[in-house]
Design a protein around this nucleic acid. Sequence first.
RNA 1: GCCGGAGUGGCGGAAUGGUAGACGCGCCGGAUUCAAAAUCCGGUGAUCGUGAGGUCGUGCGGGUUCGAGUCCCGCCUCCGGUACCA
Length: 862
Amino acid sequence: MSEYRPEEIEPKWQAVWERDKTFRSLEGGGKPKFYVLDMFPYPSGSGLHVGHVEGYTATDIVARFKFARGFNVLHPMGWDAFGLPAEQYALETGTHPSVTNEKNIATFTAQLKALGFAYDWDREVNTTDAHYYKWTQWIFLQLYKRGLAYIAEVPVNWCPALGTVLANEEVIEGRSERGGHPVIRRPMRQWMLKITAYADRLLEDLESIDWPEHLKDMQRNWIGRSRGAEVDFAVAAETAGGLDAKIRVYTTRPDTLFGATYMVLAPEHPLVAELASDAQRAEVLAYSQAAANKSELQRTDLQKDKSGVFTGAYAINPVNGKQIPIWVADYVLWGYGTGAIMAVPGHDERDWEFARKFELPIVEVISGGEVDVAAHTGDGLLVNSGLLDGLNVSDAKAKIIAWLEEQGVGQGTINYKLRDWLFSRQRFWGEPFPIIHLEDGSHAPLPEQFLPIQLPQVERYEQSGTGESPLATIEDWVNTVDPVSGQPARRETNTMPQWAGSCWYYLRYIDPHNAEKLVDPEKERYWMPVDLYVGGAEHAVLHLLYARFWHKVLFDIGAVSTKEPFQRVVNQGMILGLTYQYYRTQDGQALSYKERGANHAELTSFTVPGDAVVWKDEKPYHPEFGVELEEITEKMSKSRGNVVNPDDVIAQYGADSLRLYEMFMGPLEQTKPWNPRGVSGVHRFLSRIWRLVCEEQGLSAKVGGEASEELLRELNKTIKKVTDDTEALRFNTAIAAMMEFVNFLYKQETVPKAVVESLVQILAPYAPHAAEEIWQRLGHVGSITHHPWPAADAKYLVDDSYQLAVQVMGKLRGTLTVPIDITQQAAVELAMAEPDIARHIEGKELRRVIFVPKRILNFVVS
RNA sequence: GCCGGAGUGGCGGAAUGGUAGACGCGCCGGAUUCAAAAUCCGGUGAUCGUGAGGUCGUGCGGGUUCGAGUCCCGCCUCCGGUACCA
């Protein structure tokens, strides 16, 4: 017997793998391919997180499993390295983001290597590398050429005090996250990508991919396709200072047109100012102005209480010629539909609320509800609707659309919630656009041969103060010459958002060093699509949608061969941490949650880091104040002091134990709490295997002998279970099966070498270092990774007898060991011979016997 | 509000409609030890019973079925997403 020492084994094998390039991805050789991808990380200063480790371990197990199953495996890693933190650090300290990056990437790399992940490091990509972003820029040019990139004036979150534009997540309740300065919306020149042109394909092609249904649903909801009609309402000129105009509205309920009792324009609607009557003008303009200054968040925050102003003008309902008042209200959004609605308070909750508040008429046009009490949004028969009376909702829709089209006052249309993608940021640390602006105010794309447009190397980074990117302050860089005309020009100073680089990185892994092309078409055809893509659920909508959009554009220009990039996507669940919490009164006295009482609003909560907690009688206490702490399971965060650092776990138990524990905690996709004591359980399991097999040098005396029939059965069942479970990503039950098998082996006198070999092979994807070490001690040369996976021998999978559960009236009354092919009659006879079973039947009438071979024998009595 | 997902021992979790609680943590007992740690072996849903054995038990209330954690209907709670999208 000897001790399991991961601290010796793990670095040894990591060095061997690195030296031998064990996990190099190769094409060809007549092998099938498997592309297994992780969502690459942003290399933050805080290093790898146990959440990363979970997803990365899952794909690593799959990669190693597929290697052993004879696949060519592509399993790469890289860096999504553009991003705000490095830029903010640069502004504060003058350190170039690439320097910060390099340092953080070194940390991440060391951490990933210490976990023994089977990456082909020769394929590492970095989105901030000019050799990489050259191709990000190239893709932008292709989008531009196809008319999918355009410039628009779009409101952004402008913070005058900071002199910069903020991302939505940097704005909290209308103020900047840093400093709490006011933030207003201000239009700025922006690049937009026309993702809406692909809305239908993004929706339809979801059918062809193997993603969890909830994820597809999220994408469907985001795209938000709806079918309805656009209807033109003429403005009643005499009520609008003689203005001759039409207002087009979008509605999904054209069937309720007769119930429209007023109309609402979004505050940004261009007709607002023209329509307003003299009496109302000042009020209307003030309202529009106020709405414009509110941030997006403020506008939605205030949604409970509806606000609005009457313009003084009226519109004419085309179906009945009635005049209805035109209002302005911010519950109508300028960005959706036509920015104007017909309001049908009887059958729309929002309109109903508004009508109630401003005492506007409510008319019932669909029967079945009580429109005085609440809006009736369900189906029913049409009433008060002229030609539609008596129809149901769906027939009425069809009929009115036909009528509108015939009259030339509207038509059926399809609308999307999806909006075009705001594709520029006023930042330094992002991909520059390959665009120049000429003195005449026009802009031009730079020809491909001038790519990449590199970021400048400078000593200091300063906010422009104008809202433009810090790039605008770097004169040497901004001022350039149009290579085509020779005219002086200014470079575009916006940069691309972080999404850009991550939209196509999976393609670059396939051919990472290609200087001529984005990716070699032959290699692309070999490896695409990605067979399995694992990552956090926070990217379920945007990243995956944007990447799908780019991929479809690349498909259209012939750069890729598949319609969809990711055949299968799996989201790993979040890992929660334990927080230990107590309270303090205003005068500083510490209180346990038990003494907190009901009035704890006056108390402030504090947390104690997990390793500082003192345990007494299985209960956590504060190390100084001695109060009992409340254990709370919540998202890991620095501020809560509940972050588990993978380095610490590796130092204490080794990487194999960390990997195994994260997989053993529960199903991959589930949210799971981290139990600090849980790692010791899997560590114990690895130690048990080690002690079973290894002596200080070489193998233990227990290894040898002949395999019994029973042993072979257990072995083959375990192989089968682990194979099936690994294939289906059920890692927790695969590990449980290996544990059971090891428990079984401990009861054996001897364990034949061939059995140990099989065990180590199925263990290898999970605990690769320990497996390699034992494999070597078993006398093998070369990595276990490429040794074929053991096959379960079918003849050992079928037992010749089984435990038959016997029930009377569905209640278990006994179990019998019976031959595999037992007949119902024989089973009944055996069961009746058991006194504990028979006594539940005696004296009653046997009405029915249910016998399901290998499952159940059930007596139904009266 | 809407759309997803989940509720099973003290805890993490297992269970093609067929013996609920595999495996692990924790706990209890035993072996080993001068002793402890480590290790090995055994036990561990609740409850009644000396015992054999019985009863109850998968968020709640109904239903389908010989049989329901699993399927159906109606609720409750928690988590994730989304939010005036006409």
